[in-house]
Design a protein around this nucleic acid. Sequence first.
DNA 1: AAGTTGAGAGGACAGTTGTTCACTGACTTC
DNA 2: GAAGTCAGTGAACAACTGTCCTCTCAACTT
Lengths: 242, 242
Amino acid sequence: MSHSVGGVRQAQKQKTRQALLDAALGLLEEQSLSSLGLREVTRVVGVAPTAFYRHFRDLGELGVALVEEALGSLHVMVRAILAEQDAAEERIDRTIAVVERHVREHPAHVRFVARERRGGVRAVRHAIAGELDRFAAEVAAALKTQPVSAGWRDEDVRMLAELYVDRLVTTAAELLDAREEGGEEAVERVVWRARRQLRLISLGRRHWGEEGQASASVAEAEAESGPSGLSGPSGSAEPSGG
Amino acid sequence: MSHSVGGVRQAQKQKTRQALLDAALGLLEEQSLSSLGLREVTRVVGVAPTAFYRHFRDLGELGVALVEEALGSLHVMVRAILAEQDAAEERIDRTIAVVERHVREHPAHVRFVARERRGGVRAVRHAIAGELDRFAAEVAAALKTQPVSAGWRDEDVRMLAELYVDRLVTTAAELLDAREEGGEEAVERVVWRARRQLRLISLGRRHWGEEGQASASVAEAEAESGPSGLSGPSGSAEPSGG
DNA sequence: AAGTTGAGAGGACAGTTGTTCACTGACTTC
DNA sequence: GAAGTCAGTGAACAACTGTCCTCTCAACTT
């Protein structure tokens, strides 16, 4: 048993590594990553500043690790939402309930992602963007299987998924703010708004294709270029060469 | 002329104050407010660190001033969008064009708002939230005058306005990222997506009321409670007492 | 013309920061 | 059981931070 990669040694290392992550996450509740200090983190853990380097090159690297931790558990969440095959209305309620639960159980993670998504550390921004991208891809795949998506172009399903994901992240962040600054009343207001907005989006979705994609001829022209080609029918039309 | 409040004196003061704001805004392109240093700012301007205190108590106060500067000009922008009475499709194109222009002309302001909206400085977060709230109110007032909004409840117009505003802010931030990290192609992708998402929302808006507000009886019950009361019809119903 | 004001300078203060280096000693391997 | 690995230590480093105090001197007031 003691032959393969070390046992107690690596376990203890992982333990302090996790302690560093936890301490950082705690400190990040009231500041942003780019202002967080290395010593500040090690002080909370109760370890020498130099010990930090055994685990991360710098705080940016720790930040990226935090992203994985925060958004990894999120993939579990989306499965929960997409698993059930409810009607549109119940699906919205379930979705929001899951978001509420997630915010309640992982407030620091939610705050971290919301804050650092546009934060001052490039590597972390990219890590979050990448993770949310994977997230959107999952949602898109699930949306595609639903009857409402019949006849939809893949890029359109994807743009809808991205709209949903962004809305959920935003709602989670707002929910968090409301929870600790506005009280029960503010929370209810956020929930109410999120529900209605999702309802409206879902409504737009159901009527997409009827008249949403402009005229038929334009829709055809677009079908060949796609999202990466040009910006479609508009006042400021781009050349199709791209 | 020299009788009333000072002339040259106050003018010079305003000048260095503006220099401090500009310097801070520049430095904030690559870090967040909570990591910005007082000395860092004064060094760029070329004044003594202590001079800072003549204008702001601390960097948080400077941040709030930056919010006003950044979001003040934004109100002009919304007037431009809402002024024209185009058809829905052209309105979307015009809107996005205005956003693109704004991002091109005030990139640092856009980045600042996007970053500090969920940033680590409470006072600044609140300032941004307040300003975006005023902004949403303006949009709501404009939406209300449009024929499509006939029969809409005020809270629903407001929630739509907030959806639009959030989408525009997000789009501006994404546009900025794309512009300086992804090249022309990435910018076009963002524009394409934003256009489609607005289109879908606008579509949902046109069909709101047909079936969007659940059943009639429930819609009635909601009409009395409103957004601040409780969360309306859902699986996890709240008591009406609050 | 004399007196007041206040923006900014400059020095000094105690703390804090990230990073380096040689070190210890419990665990792992042979 | 000897040898080696390596997570964590502790001291020292130069650089930096925000804030305090006293000072100057141009612009203003009367």
